[in-house]
Design a protein around this nucleic acid. Structure first.
Lengths: 268, 268
DNA sequence: GGGTATTTGTCCGTATGTATT
DNA sequence: AAATACATACGGACAAATACC
């Protein structure tokens, strides 16, 4: 008798989901049917479903019903390799799509959106420059197979542009890569970098772009990469945001096998 | 007029919180007062507060009120260093405690809880052994200054014990460290490791131990570290769980400065 | 395109329970 | 013990989204 009714109902449904009686993608009974089944009011049923939604077990679609969530095949990014692109394991979930078996996954980035800003405190601290000094920011949105994958913003000190790296402030891709471009124009060579990995709730922009539920249930990784030159001076700060529901990371240290064995990652 | 009322109210309160009009730790007006202020029903006010709770902006305490959350000073763990202990930045929030200024933070681990199990699929895959084969698991809970920090479980193939590393199955700490112990007894030397970083919702055990809200709002990092010997054979799998609301990670690659500059990390 | 049935979303009012002060 | 404040639960009404005919 300890637990409130809505939690008991949620627990009962959870057991059915995790026990496999309700399969991923399957529709639950409607709120009205569950109301009669459990002898509770519709609002109590809704509280139970809200709890399951918060736990990421079900999702509700207005006008359609409540469904057991289909787990997404994660994108796995290796942080200790360069460049940082995701290794993709397993198959795309194409149960809803047509005949797409065997296709390659397509990585697509928008053209960089370039702005000149005053450095906010967080950027200034990691770039080791004064707060409020001028910086160049280059922002890109990245998709995999049309699914929003990450949002990335790189920051450079404005001094780089003044010293000759003027293509930094031109919109559009720098085809040879910005790091190589900086080496060629300014002689700046990256000798190391530090990633700082955090998780926070998504803001409004991110919620929209990644198509996340607006209740803040799904957080985002925010990875700050500070690149250092030979003199251990920061030469670039890259902040990348990834939704936690479809991204994982790998860090390799020392001598390790080439790739993660097996085709399937993800929890057992 | 597009947005429902409870979201407009939540938005209004959110602006007050992020604008600093409502300070961390400060109590919001009660549901009854907000009901009169916004001309909505108490249930609608509660919906707004539930949304803010899901976004991690406020917390409710029965019998007391609703409060703006106090951000925790994060524990920062460097994944590319060994051993993996958190670097601690900034001050402990001791506004509620007494005179504790200047004290050191204390790291405490419970004695290992040792079990012999059959390898579940996820463990077998990363240890590259057969599913269902015997493994030794050693589980520890770790605290910083009394605050639950992480739960760690290490898995070793049972063969290690049979070959002479019998202290693996004794409860209690192996003071010289298990890696050194395995090197001394079996000649197994770790030459590298791979960390695999995921985020998922906390289960019931974790929710209890870390004292997380039961609505699944706060997720947990799950870091799987696979250690490899000279022959690139996995010799240990360590799974560590950290709540995302108080943990961050650092990855260093190449030549980087000693420490993160400045005393304060965390969002601007 | 329009209309209707179905299903979830929002909002209200009320009553009672539980935790804290 | 009493007051306060949030938590649970009920029932009802209408809105909005979707699917189907």
């Amino acid at each position: 008798m300890a637990n409130p009714m809505y939690r008991q109902i949620a627990e009962h449904l959870r057991e059915q989901i995790e026990g496999g009686e309700l399969e991923p993608g399957q529709q639950l009974r409607t709120e009205i049917e569950l109301r009669e089944h459990y002898g509770a009011s519709r609002n109590t049923i809704r509280d139970a479903i809200k709890l399951l939604t918060a736990l990421g077990l079900v999702e509700t679609k207005p006008g359609q019903g409540t469904f057991v969530v289909r787990k997404m095949e994660p994108y796995v990014t290796t942080l200790t390799g360069s460049p940082k692109v995701p290794t993709l394991y397993g198959e795309v979930d194409d149960s809803a799509a047509g005949h797409t078996e065997g296709r390659e996954r397509l990585l697509y980035s928008t053209d960089p959106q370039v702005e000149i800003q005053k450095a906010p405190a967080s950027v200034a601290r990691l770039l080791e420059i004064d707060e409020g000094s001028q910086i160049v920011s280059r922002h890109q949105k990245r998709y995999i197979d049309g699914t929003p994958w990450s949002m990335q913003t790189s920051f450079y000190p404005m001094g780089f542009v003044l010293k000759g790296a003027d293509r930094l402030i031109q919109a559009g891709d720098i085809s040879i890569g910005t790091m190589r471009y900086l080496e060629q124009t300014l002689g700046l060579k990256q000798v190391g970098y530090r990633d700082w990995i955090t998780v926070r709730t998504a803001d409004a922009t991110e919620t929209t772009f990644f198509n996340l539920p607006l209740d803040g249930r799904v957080g985002v990784f925010e990875v700050f990469m500070t690149a250092y030159d030979r003199t251990k001076t920061p030469m670039r700060l890259t902040a990348t945001v990834y939704p936690t529901d479809r991204n994982q990371f790998i860090v390799n240290v020392g001598d390790v096998p080439e790739s993660v064995n097996g085709s399937e990652l993800g929890p057992a």
